[in-house]
């Protein structure tokens, strides 16, 4: 590891400690993250091409993957709309309790996912605060795929709000004034001047919320009902396969999810670089 560190060769510097800190960083990173993750791909490769695809295209696996990605996509879409609205209200308007609402946005980052799952199940169960209103109207949230979407909206909300907020706060109001003096209505200004400037940060928030939602486990399993083919998410299917000692089955699902997650991570990095170029803000 140390030889790798020195072969990276930094630009000359008078500061000490390059070799040892970079060596430790790479060693620790490899031991904790990279080697264990590589195990998933080594194990998948050991299955052989045909066996891997037989496991990956198992109908129950395909249904679980579709549900995880579909629910995460819908939830991230909802979050783009309401997260933008929440960011707008928190940045542009003054109202009592603003700081409290602003701080509360980060609750999903701090609240353990299992607690969130329990809370939403209690709210949307047929006798819960919201369920007792919605169930008589024919809207079942708990123990259905809709419940998964609700939990994922909770999990993803801060990603969108915290991506958009700094860019919106930094937005040059003179552009809005220019747009207004040129005769644009307020709606036209928002849609044609402000939204395009926020687009990179909205997309970043969307991608972050989506990536997090795809892998989410703790907040979902309580509310989902976990019926195979209907409301069974991919991470849960990995756990079920592990409990059956079907390591090949678990690993094949994990490998597919990892590949897609890494593609998303690449996309997020590109979006953030785009956002930085446009606004100079690290969202």
């Amino acid at each position: 590891m140390n030889s790798l560190a020195t072969s990276l060769r930094p630009a000359p510097s008078v500061l000490p400690g390059w070799g040892i800190t970079m060596g430790l960083t790479l060693t620790w990173l490899s031991l904790i993250i990279l080697i264990p993750l590589a195990g998933v791909f080594i194990k998948s490769a050991g299955l052989g091409w045909d066996e891997f695809w037989r496991l990956a295209l198992d109908p129950r696996t395909v249904a679980a993957l579709k549900l995880s990605f579909g629910a995460a996509l819908i939830a991230a879409g909802v979050n783009v709309v309401f997260g933008f609205l929440a960011a707008w209200v928190l940045v542009r308007y003054e109202f009592p309790g603003k700081r409290l609402f602003d701080a509360a946005i980060d609750l999903p980052f701090a609240l353990p996912t299992a607690v969130a799952g329990l809370a939403f199940t209690a709210l949307y169960a047929p006798n819960g605060w919201l369920g007792s209103w919605l169930v008589p109207l024919g809207i079942k949230v708990a123990y259905t795929p809709l419940g998964i979407v609700v939990a994922l909206i909770f999990i993803g909300l801060p990603f969108v709000v915290r991506s958009v907020q700094p860019v919106l706060a930094d937005f040059d109001r003179e552009l809005e004034e220019a747009s207004a003096t040129l005769g644009a209505t307020r709606l036209q200004t928002v849609v044609k001047v402000i939204l395009p400037a926020l687009l990179p940060s909205l997309l970043t928030g969307f991608a972050l919320a989506f990536a997090r939602g795809v892998g989410e486990y703790g907040s979902i399993i309580f509310i989902a009902g976990n019926i195979p083919y209907v409301s069974e998410i991919a991470p849960l299917l990995i756990v079920i396969r592990l409990e059956e000692f079907n390591y090949a089955g678990a690993t094949s699902i994990a490998a597919i999810m990892l590949v897609i997650s890494f593609a998303l991570l690449l996309l997020i990095n590109l979006l953030q670089a785009w956002n930085r170029r446009r606004t100079g803000i690290q969202a």
């Binding site: 970079m22 892998g215 690993t251 998303l264």
Partner: peptide
Amino acid sequence: FEFKGKSFLITLIDLPFSVSPVISGLVYIL
């Protein structure tokens, strides 16, 4: 320090954010 591949290294450190928690456990079982 300034060196090549800095942003790639930061991405590697960020990897656990993009991995499902279940997979984070699975890797140690494997």
